[in-house]
């Protein structure tokens, strides 16, 4: 990827289109965080491609002054894979929602993660279908009342991170939809990561599922309910910065520094780069605290690198340089 000569600002990435999400939607926060993250990456604007599926989130590419495609429901990971394989020098982003990625597009979503192309996925999780006006989604909670579950949802939800890591995701991060600074940081790290990165944004839908994440994301409770993990740092949270996580057998346990002789040294130190995802899965599943930040970032060979290696080797060993070499090779015969 070539480096931009120009120092961009967020304005360079805003298209001339009027943004049409509902007032108060976290999508605005995500858009701005992305427009701020891209200048930090130093990539050329013309090398950036956003591919989206269908849903509220998927209108995103129209608002970015880069290359973009608003495609069809669930298929953005497949289309983005083609873009990346055609031109590995591009910075390719998939913009998707919980329905788009995990219901209709579940298959493409898991296979992109498995293959590990260097593509960044931003998953706007609002635990509801917004654009179709309020049906439950694959991340809606059991009991959630929606237009299509008037007596309460009976389908157990996916946890996006759990599904992703199960599909061999090398990079998974989670951020609240109302924390733009953290979000920008995570977008920058996701983009820098070589391989498929998945950033789940807990995105509040003010119309159909208002307050779905409030118990974790409200300013008043955020510090006490969320643990923002950072690689190499102890897992501390709480307003007083006195709570932490330890491993007790096969369970995570919340402890308080200063109680029962616990000191900061006793806390788990976050290792995002471990290949073994066991602890990462436990962090994904933890409800108290809700873990945000880059939970997993295990560096691995990418699909493009494997493909390039193969192609290079075949090219080196082959006598076929032009198609004529192939067409006229082997069992041919002359007719006079």
């Amino acid at each position: 990827m070539e480096t931009a000569e120009k120092q961009y600002t967020f304005k360079d990435f805003a298209s001339d289109q009027e943004v049409r999400w509902c007032p108060g939607c976290d999508d605005y926060v995500i858009l701005r965080a992305m427009q701020k993250a891209l200048p930090e990456l130093g990539v050329r604007k013309e090398d950036v491609v956003f591919i989206s599926g269908i849903g509220c989130s998927s209108r995103f590419p129209y608002y970015m002054d880069t290359y973009g495609m608003h495609s069809i429901h669930g298929r953005a990971p497949a289309i983005a894979s083609g873009v990346k394989l055609a031109n590995p020098d591009l910075s390719v982003w998939v913009i998707t929602g919980d329905g788009d990625a995990m219901a209709i597009g579940g298959n493409h979503f898991i296979h992109l993660l498995r293959r590990n192309l260097d593509i960044n996925i931003v998953l706007f999780n609002n635990e509801i279908y917004g654009l179709t006006k309020g049906q439950f989604s694959p991340t809606s909670t059991v009991g959630q009342r929606t237009k299509s579950s008037p007596y309460g949802n009976i389908q157990p939800p996916f946890l996006p991170g759990e599904l992703a890591i199960g599909a061999q995701a090398r990079f998974f991060a989670r951020v609240g939809g109302n924390t733009p600074k953290e979000m920008t940081e995570v977008f920058v790290e996701a983009a820098k990561f070589k391989g498929t990165s998945l950033v789940e944004v807990l995105q509040n839908c003010p119309i159909f599922n208002n307050g779905a994440f409030a118990k974790y994301t409200d300013k008043a409770v955020r510090a006490d309910k969320q643990l923002f993990v950072e690689h190499g740092k102890p897992m501390i949270f709480g307003k007083e910065r006195n709570k932490g996580l330890v491993l007790n057998g096969l369970k995570l346990e919340v402890v308080t520094i200063g109680e029962n002789g616990i000191t900061e040294e006793d806390l788990l130190v976050h290792d995002a780069q471990m290949q073994d995802p066991t602890l990462h899965q436990m962090l994904v599943r933890s409800e108290y605290p809700l873990v945000t930040g880059i939970i997993r970032g295990f560096p691995d060979i990418t699909f493009e690198e494997r493909a390039a290696d193969k192609t290079e080797k075949v090219k080196r060993d082959s006598n076929f340089h032009k198609t004529d070499d192939l067409f006229f090779s082997g069992e041919t015969y002359e007719v006079d």
């Binding site: 491609v49 495609m69 497949a78 083609g82 394989l85 493409h108 296979h111």
Partner: peptide
């Protein structure tokens, strides 16, 4: 570049992406 995709839809989807990229 040949990609054996996860299904028929990803087959054409990846081709559309590759076409978009030239």
């Amino acid at each position: 570049k040949s990609l054996q995709a996860e299904d028929e839809i990803a087959g054409i989807g990846s081709a559309i992406g590759a076409s978009f990229a030239g």
